[in-house]
Design a protein around this nucleic acid. Structure first.
Lengths: 217, 217
DNA sequence: TCCGTTACCGTACGCTGTATTCCGTGGATA
DNA sequence: TATCCACGGAATACAGCGTACGGTAACGGA
């Protein structure tokens, strides 16, 4: 069994998809590959470099988003592929924003995004572009983390009313019944029906609109 | 030495501030308190509950933001206190968005934010509020994670040109010299002078403006 | 044929979170 | 007063983690 960085990353991703980042260990990857644990260190310096490898493999998928002539269509395509990737590989969202993404594919995605955004209206100079990229990336990171976290808790508690009441309910409903958090209570009770993808798209549109129109000097 | 959840959280926070989340362990907290490791489990179920305790202690600081009559001033105050907290306790940003924040102080902050935002113009119903909160929180999470990550790498590489060239330079400059990432290259070279706080405030304003004006139905 | 170098491998160390066992002491009862 | 019991805190135990390190086997050149 001869190894390679790509093969190691692939099995690591499979394991992380199945058991999460906490369930991922160098030893388990090695066992899955039928190899002693220390073999991996011939291809990778650190566990952390292994994570970087996994992240960049995901960026490779994201980078396959086609180029459009319209800047907005390009950005939308990239962001949606990123969201798909984060939902496919939930551990990806755990790493999102936690380390600089400097792998070749991550840089390629960054380049495509930046290039598209630089063609947006209202982008007067490079400082505008820097800020706009910052806002967009911040939104992506935060929104995907939130969505994945939500999905996880929903999965662990069960979506249906009964299981909800049994797990988080006792504590949270007691808290909300105190009357100290009326707005939150209304949000939890009345606002549970919103569709995640719709909300994401809505807010993404808001961000892009906000970026391209410059009301404040 | 008699313990309490508050005292445990306080020392845990001190240690995490000093050595990061990776440098934090149940045993070290116990040793710092002059106590056997298992004593902590009389006050806390899990290591993860201990993290929740720490997070909510930070939210207690954030919650001290004064209420303003103006909704925008209130939101700004909360967000800025959150940013201050994240820069004071960098581990806080590692936990941001990674778990639901359901502690009493976190709920209090959420309530204040939601209440203020619900008084913003253009907030027609609870779905609008839900979405607006989502966008705002996503931005906060992402922006703070990015800023802390940036600060960490800057600290580890050294801010000055020489140290930069020595650490990330070899790889990154080689990458950028390939010419495959021209926009990123321009951003790295020309855009390094931007002030972090200014950028944060600018983008926060953009988000709030975007939330309160509803150009798309 | 012999040696130097290189590539591979298993073992071992220190650390983690946590379950379980053990023990000393204080209070209650005969 | 003597004995026993209950109980709280300390110590030990266990399974797993990342990875440093020492040994070994194979291979190329002299």
């Amino acid at each position: 069994m001869l190894l390679s960085r790509a093969k190691i990353a692939a099995t690591a991703i499979r394991l992380a998809d199945a058991h999460g980042l906490d369930g991922l260990s160098v030893r388990k990857i090695a066992k899955e590959l039928g190899v002693g644990p220390m073999r991996l260190y011939d291809y990778v310096i650190n566990r952390s470099e292994l994570l970087d490898l996994m992240v960049d493999a995901v960026y490779a998928q994201i980078a396959e988003a086609g180029q459009h002539t319209d800047w907005r269509a390009t950005v939308l395509a990239i962001v949606h592929r990123t969201r798909d990737a984060a939902l496919d590989h939930e551990w990806f969202s755990d790493l999102l924003g936690g380390r600089p993404h400097l792998g070749p594919h991550a840089l390629a995605v960054g380049e495509s995004t930046a290039a598209a955004l630089s063609r947006a209206p209202g982008m007067r100079n490079i400082d505008d572009l820097q800020r706009a990229l910052g806002a967009l990336n911040a939104f992506i990171i935060g929104a995907l983390r939130r969505e994945v976290t939500e999905r996880r808790t929903a999965r662990s508690t069960g979506t249906d009313e009964a299981a909800w009441q049994a797990s988080l309910g006792p504590y949270l409903t007691r808290m909300l019944k105190t009357g100290r958090y009326p707005t939150v209570a209304r949000l939890v009770i009345d606002g549970a029906h919103l569709n995640a993808e719709e909300t994401f798209n809505h807010n993404l549109t808001t961000i892009l609109d906000g970026i391209t129109s410059h009301p404040h000097p």
